[in-house]
Simulated assay, not measured.
Amino acid sequence: MSSQLLEIKTAIQIQKPVSEVFEAIVDPAKMSNYFIAKGSDRMATEKEISWQFPEFDMVFPIKVNKVERDKAVSFYWDIDGRQTLVEISLQPKEHNSTLVTATEKDMINDEAGIKWLKGNTEGWANFLACLKAYLEYGINLRKGAFDFMRH
């Protein structure tokens, strides 16, 4: 990453095996328990799907780049008219745990890029916390959390 480009990187360890974490990320029925309201299909390499979020009335097109079972998922989505690449990697850890790292890249280091960096860093940290709460405790932290954002 050059100083001209901004990149988001967040991580959390989840006390669940890699296979369970992977399924929670690629299966829209499971994702709807912590991240999206609805997804059109399961994530698979080079597949185009769509996501709906509970707080927005829009459908977000997702271009899945690559899915590596129990290892990684990457996709492109549109952020303010620009495609950004999201990479989610899974690394097995001790005691049947998984380190989940979410990276989103890149934006130009300007005012719009800094706004993106702030908002999406918060978003990916929230994604990871919600994923952890769902998998470890069966809790949907996102439910009602962003109702204030509805127009």
Rank of each mutant, 00 (worst) to 15 (best):
Q83A: 14
K71V: 10
N33L: 03
M58N: 14
E55R: 02
I108M: 10
E68C: 08
E55Y: 05
V64G: 04
L117Q: 07
L90P: 09
F56I: 03
L99T: 11
H95R: 15
G81R: 07
Q83C: 10
S40I: 12
K93L: 11
E68N: 09
L90M: 06
Y76L: 13
L99E: 10
R42C: 05
F60Q: 11
V67L: 02
Y34M: 05
K63C: 10
S32K: 00
F53D: 00
D78S: 14
Q52T: 00
E46Q: 13
D110A: 04
V100Y: 00
M107H: 06
Y76T: 09
A102S: 12
K105F: 08
D57R: 09
I114H: 14
P61I: 13
K93A: 13
F35D: 01
S97D: 06
N96T: 12
K63S: 15
W51L: 12
P54C: 00
N33R: 05
I114T: 14
F35E: 02
G39K: 10
L117R: 08
W77E: 12
V67Y: 02
R42Q: 05
L90T: 08
T84D: 05
N109Q: 00
F75I: 09
E46I: 06
P61K: 10
F35R: 00
A44K: 15
S40N: 11
V64L: 03
I49F: 04
E111T: 12
L117T: 08
H95W: 11
